[in-house]
Write a protein that binds this DNA or RNA. Structure first.
Lengths: 110, 110
DNA sequence: TTGTTATATTGCAATATTACGATAAATGTA
DNA sequence: TACATTTATCGTAATATTGCAATATAACAA
């Protein structure tokens, strides 16, 4: 049905899923990596960086912003986007924790 | 159009996106976390753990396996699934790297 | 005000995803 | 062999996502 049964899972699980889903697209990964590369904030030159229409990129930026992965501040006519440090850190910790737990368990299956 | 323009991005970006997309669903996160909790491998009791139909869970397991996040080995009538350590580590590193890069740059934007 | 530039929104078409019942396939057991 | 158990696959319905052209909005400049 294309609809996810969110009620069936914990708040944490749903939140993590939303965060990951927001990044889980090559265009949005490219945007995140571009923001990372151009130290200073970036505005609309992402459009000239990626081979996607301006409308499409605006949509991807919106999704990233909604998920709290980036933030944008108006800068005259342009808009300055940059990464939300905390959220990236949260994701880094999530996977690090799992990784560590796997390493600590000495089960020899599979 | 619902179709992603994969040709426009790097192999790495596409691969990362596929990995993240495979996890980016509350049911699949729940599966991963369950696999993590029950030290030893798990088989079909994920079905009794989650309020989803067996067919649905089998589908989610397939996606996780296709993405290389879990692996499964036949164990009699049952199938024993467990996490693929390396892939989780790869993701942990991906976000750690980004997180570190953000911390190292002293730009004061946004 | 008028024009220009930068971004956002709308409306659509094409695909993808999610979920599940029904059924198949595989393996072990009586 | 016949049956039970476990997992996979198929088919289908409902919904979500992706991408873009067209258009709207916002802010500045002349």
């Amino acid at each position: 049905m294309g609809i996810t049964k969110s009620e069936s899972f914990t708040v944490q699980q749903n939140e993590t899923a939303l965060l990951l889903k927001a990044i889980a697209h090559p265009a949005r990964i490219a945007i995140v990596e571009h923001l990372l590369k151009v130290q200073s904030c970036i505005c609309g030159d992402i459009v000239s960086e990626l081979p996607l229409a301006q409308a499409t990129i605006s949509q991807h930026l919106k999704e990233l912003k909604n998920a709290g992965i980036i933030k944008g501040s108006v800068e005259g006519t342009a808009i300055c986007y940059c990464l939300e440090k905390e959220v990236i850190e949260k994701l880094a910790q999530y996977f690090s924790t799992i990784s560590n737990q796997i390493n600590n368990q000495k089960s020899t299956c599979c």
